[in-house]
Amino acid sequence: MTEYKLVVVGAGGVGKSALTIQLIQNHFVDEYDPTIEDSYRKQVVIDGETCLLDILDTAGQEEYSAMRDQYMRTGEGFLCVFAINNTKSFEDIHHYREQIKRVKDSEDVPMVLVGNKCDLPSRTVDTKQAQDLARSYGIPFIETSAKTRQGVDDAFYTLVREIRKHKEKMSKDGKKKKKKSKTKCVIM
């Protein structure tokens, strides 16, 4: 069974824990209790493949930012979460993405942009803004509501699919490099 290491990042209060708990335990946590770091595991079937999701729910508070490099190193894919009623959390996505790329030393890291709290009427981040940002990053965008469960499975499952595509691409690139290195030079 394939294991996928997913990391949920975003500013404090955007609903990272609520999304994760909704996926794992099928219930909505409405009281806000700032996370330092929590880890969850769940076995699911995605596109006919049974897999184990190892999900790291991270601290959004700035005082825990020193811990970010460590979990970013171990993560295979990242859910970059903002709240649709919090423009600052949307603007912060850029910083999370840049930090992930720096730590992973790669421009090509599996990510999904997630606009959470889409059940709320007080939207300050337009869907088109988020779609445009995701398009500019070359990553999928999904709106979710941890409260109603809308888009929750889709967000995590899409990230797994992005990781699969990335692994497939990397193995193809690896095979191309191996083929090239088999060419021999004969000096007579």
Rank of each mutant, 00 (worst) to 15 (best):
T2F: 07
E3A: 11
Y4C: 08
V7A: 06
V7L: 03
V7K: 03
V8A: 01
V8L: 07
V9T: 01
A11T: 02
G12V: 06
G13T: 09
G13D: 10
V14N: 06
K16G: 07
S17E: 00
A18G: 11
L19V: 09
L19E: 08
I21W: 14
Q25A: 05
Q25S: 07
Q25C: 02
N26S: 09
D30N: 09
D33N: 07
P34E: 12
P34Q: 08
T35K: 06
T35E: 04
I36V: 10
I36E: 13
I36W: 06
S39Y: 04
Y40W: 08
R41F: 05
K42W: 03
Q43C: 08
V44Q: 07
V45N: 06
V45A: 08
I46G: 05
G48A: 04
C51S: 07
C51W: 10
L53I: 12
L53M: 08
D54K: 15
I55D: 09
L56A: 13
D57Y: 12
A59I: 05
G60E: 12
G60C: 07
Q61G: 12
E62V: 09
E63P: 10
Y64C: 12
R68C: 07
D69Q: 05
D69E: 07
Q70T: 04
M72F: 12
G75H: 10
G75F: 09
E76G: 05
F78G: 00
L79I: 12
A83D: 15
T87Q: 14
T87A: 12
K88M: 13
D92G: 05
D92C: 04
H95L: 04
Y96K: 03
Q99V: 12
K101Q: 12
K101Y: 01
V103L: 13
V103R: 03
D105R: 10
E107F: 13
D108G: 06
V109K: 01
P110R: 01
P110G: 00
V112E: 00
K117Q: 10
R123E: 14
R123Y: 09
D126P: 04
T127R: 10
Q129G: 04
S136W: 07
G138M: 02
F141C: 04
E143F: 02
S145H: 14
K147G: 14
R149D: 09
Q150G: 14
G151S: 05
G151V: 05
D153R: 14
A155C: 06
A155I: 14
F156R: 01
Y157A: 15
T158P: 01
T158D: 13
L159V: 05
V160I: 13
E162A: 06
R164W: 08
H166I: 06
K167E: 07
E168T: 11
E168W: 08
K169E: 13
D173E: 14
K177G: 13
S181D: 15
K182V: 07
K182S: 14
K184Y: 02
C185T: 15
V186M: 05
